[in-house]
Design a protein around this nucleic acid. Structure first.
Lengths: 138, 138
DNA sequence: GGGTCGATTGTAATCATATAACGTTTCTTG
DNA sequence: CAAGAAACGTTATATGATTACAATCGACCC
């Protein structure tokens, strides 16, 4: 008997959603849907749609982000991710590590641009691809 | 006998590159690689690789951009696109129109973030998906 | 001309990512 | 319990991208 639907706790996730979320949480980098599928075969997963459906829900809840430039997914770094604004990702193309960041000023600028043009945003993607500090020195 | 390789003019494009570039230029929105392939069958295109190879080159030259969140491609809006910095895209999910923009302040903030972390950028993606002014009023 | 190197091309096969369309089960709520 | 909504399972298919290999073209040099 949860009072309101938003901020739904992890305990309210269905079995499949929990499995997918756990796979992403324990990974040390982004995973593709098919990688998740393979990891969950032992748990009874058989088809891509089982993964995609769980991913859709988890994204809706803000627990998981999609990395557009990688076609893959990552658990949200923020403990109880209700963070609504823009989220950026810095992706190392060598080691695969992803760092999540946000920036109020960028958010403001994008917001201004959109307001001026009456553009109604649904999703904002900011992704930096390159080499992290460690990898760029090797 | 062109003196240097950079800023290569359109006239230096190969036949395939020109065909792909023209297809994108005359389109009124982004095209997927396979859509381009279909449009160029009459010109002798038979396989996806012919398109992807041309697209790679055109992106290298800055004549074409890839929209990561759509898995598709668009001709650069800037006449002689040597624009090096960040480029953002606002994509209408209803009518498919894409507007290209840039913002020095955002570029600065991203640059600062990356410098502070010694992150060496290779490509920056900024994409806004939502509804354009026209479509959001209908 | 003949030789060489790099960029480009053509083609087939394959891999990777995502969705459509179906029907069934489970959860919730009155 | 009845009924609607949400989640699920399965098969087939659509869509996007790459690997591998051989052939060709162009610029350059001797």
């Amino acid at each position: 008997m949860t009072s309101h639907v938003h901020e739904r706790p992890l305990s309210d996730l269905t079995k499949n959603q929990k499995l997918v979320f756990d796979a992403l949480s324990s990974a040390d980098g982004p995973l593709s849907a098919y990688t998740i599928l393979d990891q969950l075969r032992d748990e009874g997963f058989r088809a891509p749609l089982q993964v995609y459906r769980a991913l859709d829900k988890l994204q809706e809840l803000g627990l998981v982000h999609r990395l557009e430039s990688l076609n893959s997914f990552i658990a949200c770094a923020h403990p109880h991710c209700a963070s609504h604004g823009m989220i950026g990702f810095a992706i190392c193309e060598n080691c695969g590590q992803v760092e999540e960041f946000s920036d109020a000023e960028i958010e403001t600028r994008l917001g201004t641009w959109m307001r001026e043009r009456a553009f109604k945003p649904r999703k904002t993607t900011v992704e930096l691809r390159g080499l992290c500090a460690t990898c760029s020195t090797h």
